[in-house]
Design a protein around this nucleic acid. Sequence first.
DNA 1: AGAATAGTGTCTCTCAGACATTATTTG
DNA 2: CAAATAATGTCTGAGAGACACTATTCT
Lengths: 211, 211
Amino acid sequence: MSEILLNVHVVMFSLREEALHVLLTPAEGRTWGLPHAQVQATESLEDAAARAFAGQIDKRQAHLEQLYTYGDPERDPRWRLVSVVYFALVPTNAQQASGKMRWFRVDKLPPLAYDHASITAYALRRLRYKLEYSAVGFQLLPSEFTLSELQHMYEIILGEKLDKRNFRRRILGSGIIEETPHQRGGEGRPARLYRYRPDAVAEVKVRRLFP
Amino acid sequence: MSEILLNVHVVMFSLREEALHVLLTPAEGRTWGLPHAQVQATESLEDAAARAFAGQIDKRQAHLEQLYTYGDPERDPRWRLVSVVYFALVPTNAQQASGKMRWFRVDKLPPLAYDHASITAYALRRLRYKLEYSAVGFQLLPSEFTLSELQHMYEIILGEKLDKRNFRRRILGSGIIEETPHQRGGEGRPARLYRYRPDAVAEVKVRRLFP
DNA sequence: AGAATAGTGTCTCTCAGACATTATTTG
DNA sequence: CAAATAATGTCTGAGAGACACTATTCT
């Protein structure tokens, strides 16, 4: 299809300074946009997505997942552009190189180019939704974390306070995390560190809606 | 991207003769494949998807939803083919033209070309999953239906028997359907007809898994 | 009247949600 | 010993799941 341009775009999320952030790159004029790459004939879509943020984030630390493909003929005034959009989560402590890209709080985004604002909004909606019924959230945390950190992560993304005792009862009862022998010290009583168990059934059964 | 071919494929489901069926079209050799179309520079992806089954099914009767984009360089030995795959549901009584395409029971599929078997399997998994937490199932039924027909649809797709009283209690309690003044006669006591209420909150809250 | 299908109510048990105090460490 | 954070248990109410009989129509 000589007249159709095929790109990938990436909506990358990370927790920084107690808030959810998105990685953006400078775009036309004073606007910002999602990191992107043109798909090469010999690479997979996922490899293209990894190229979009190469030099900024180590791809081995990123959890990548396909989000949606945008292909409306009106979305870019210059070309017929079809974009496969990926959704990425990186842990708080992920290594980061310097460059033109910057992290922005999702509640304080700069003006975004083209349809990137609606794509970002959709990705955020999906992140919140997936957080509730899958175990993706752990991709935003370092490999060992305290229960308070885990609860905090949920609270930031879902935007609501959770009850500490109920939270612990449910998260431990689900078997999705396990204790490590380590503790994290600091001010106050040290907290036990836990780790995520990828082998645990992440396909937990959700209560059905209708039948 | 002159070397990349952009297609759409459609996995279309319908209930026929008490079983879930998929629409297939003859492919290379003795195999069958998913209906497809090449994306034109001026049409939307969804329009291209509708073209894929034009002449067979009236597109106004089909519920179309984007499923996933497949773009592995190895998936077609002849070209670098990227396919945006749509998922379609049509009601049992949808008009159907004649042509080369045929309906096959999902549990008795013929040999499928390329990666179409895994795409179909994924679409089926998604259909079962979505059926449990959204209202898509109604797209497989005519606009008015009895509670027995509705329950039957769920049983066929989920592959398990459901309790009649619990089913009615929950489905009516959810407010997702409403009575019509009509009845359907036949053998035995006539049944009241219901209709789907698209305005009812289909975004019903699912019980959270973790937090 | 018999066959076929539609329609209806109760009990139990699990689990979500609300809620406050004690334990351990550091400065 | 004061400040800070971690860790822990109980009660109540809602709803999922199991279960069997009556009602209406047709032939």
